[in-house]
């Protein structure tokens, strides 16, 4: 389970874009092949005709378009990979921050689980269902977690971890 049940929008649209780009490049290659074959046949028939020269130019442009498209696709894929890595790192870092803080508050293993689920936005009923526990138990565990963390409730508990990310004056 990753942090946050909502799939990231950025990588998804990037994937769609790269797929569209791939389809375009393949279509362009087909068009280029047909046109180049036609241009070659015309050139063989009448090399000096303005029509032939123009066709050769268009063929050249099509081939260039394919090469540029492939290059763009290559760069997009590389960028996507880099962003994914950065996202993984950020996820890992946040997970580490949470682990460390839970250590510092001396949460029990059960409380850590409940705390993490609460951070993911699940309500008492949801947490109880996942953990197969009574809602009363979960409520009691949450109260203990808030007490150990010295926060007033869920909102403050969650904001504890994003506060640093919202620093208005990064220096």
């Amino acid at each position: 389970m990753t942090l946050g049940a909502v799939p990231p929008r950025g990588p998804r649209s990037a994937r769609r874009f790269s797929a569209a780009l791939a389809v375009t490049v393949v279509l362009q290659t087909m068009a280029a092949l047909f046109f180049v074959a036609d241009a070659v046949a015309d050139l063989a028939e009448d090399p000096a005709a303005p029509h032939s020269i123009f066709e050769a130019l268009v063929a050249l442009a099509l081939i260039l378009g394919v090469v540029m498209g492939v290059w763009q696709l290559r760069r997009t894929l590389a960028q996507m990979r880099q962003q994914e890595r950065a996202l993984d790192t950020a996820r890992g870092s946040l997970a580490q921050v949470i682990e460390d803080q839970f250590d510092a508050w001396k949460l029990t293993p059960a409380e850590r689980d409940v705390g993490l689920l609460a951070l993911k936005g699940l309500d008492v009923a949801g947490i109880a269902e996942i953990r197969g526990a009574a809602q009363g138990t979960v409520r009691a565990q949450l109260t203990r977690i808030y007490a150990k963390a010295g926060v007033s409730g869920r909102a403050q508990f969650a904001s504890w971890f994003v506060e640093d990310l919202l620093d208005p004056d990064p220096s």
Partner: peptide, 19 residues
Amino acid sequence: GWMVLAVLAIRLLWGVIGP
């Protein structure tokens, strides 16, 4: 058949400069 040639060409190009 011609489309296969084009698809093959782009895949072989990708085999050199792709990821």
